[in-house]
Design a binder for these strands. Structure first.
Length: 183
DNA sequence: CCCTGATTCGC
DNA sequence: GCGAATCAGG
């Protein structure tokens, strides 16, 4: 199949809309993603260069690097936030992992806040503990940017079973529940 | 290993 | 002009 005017038009539109080369190749049919990319170049389209977004580091390593105490959290806030983000953004799926990680840090607070209001509870005071101060009974819910100097953990008293205090445990549990319902 | 786009080069 | 092969990256 060659590049008829119609096909070229479709290519232009889909590419402009942000579809990936392979996705466009599928829709058009009869062409490979390479063909699509090649054509895009010849048409001098493109533009879609994100200046190689630098994902940087995520919180996960920090939490995982904690003492034995923090070894196996049932569900980290990061995970919960990721799930919330996913359900609220059915669009960005393919770029997945990396893109989401970036958003997590940025939105974890924006996502958590609303949930907090829904729970009808007041956000508890935090003891602002650093990583080394965590024990078996301190809430390990991270607060702030892991890379920022003021990063700390909630530190409130947590039950025997959970790694979080009552408030944050509720946050995590509720978020997951909603995720399953929406699924 | 999956994917992304970018580039090359024989056709 | 075309696109497979290849490259560079996530």
């Amino acid at each position: 199949m060659g590049w008829t005017d119609e096909r070229v038009e479709m290519l232009r539109q889909l590419w402009t809309e942000g579809h990936s080369a392979s996705q466009i190749a599928d829709k058009l049919g009869g062409v490979s993603r390479n063909a699509v990319i090649g054509k895009v170049h010849r048409l001098k389209l493109e533009s879609r260069m994100k200046t190689e977004a630098k994902p940087a580091i995520v919180a996960e390593p920090v939490v995982a690097a904690a003492p034995r105490v923090v070894a196996q959290p049932v569900a980290t806030p990061q995970v919960v936030a990721a799930q919330v983000v996913q359900t609220s953004r059915p669009v960005a799926r393919t770029m997945g992992a990396t893109a989401l990680k970036v958003e997590i840090q940025h939105e974890i607070e924006e996502e958590a806040a609303p949930v907090a209001r829904q729970s009808g509870e007041v956000v508890p005071m935090t003891r602002k503990l650093s990583l080394v101060q965590l024990t078996e009974r301190t809430c390990k819910w991270p607060i702030g940017d892991p890379l920022a100097p003021d990063f700390h953990f909630c530190g409130d008293h947590s039950g025997d079973g959970t790694p979080y205090c009552a408030f944050h445990a509720k946050l995590a549990f509720q978020a997951v529940t909603e995720r399953r319902r929406a699924r």
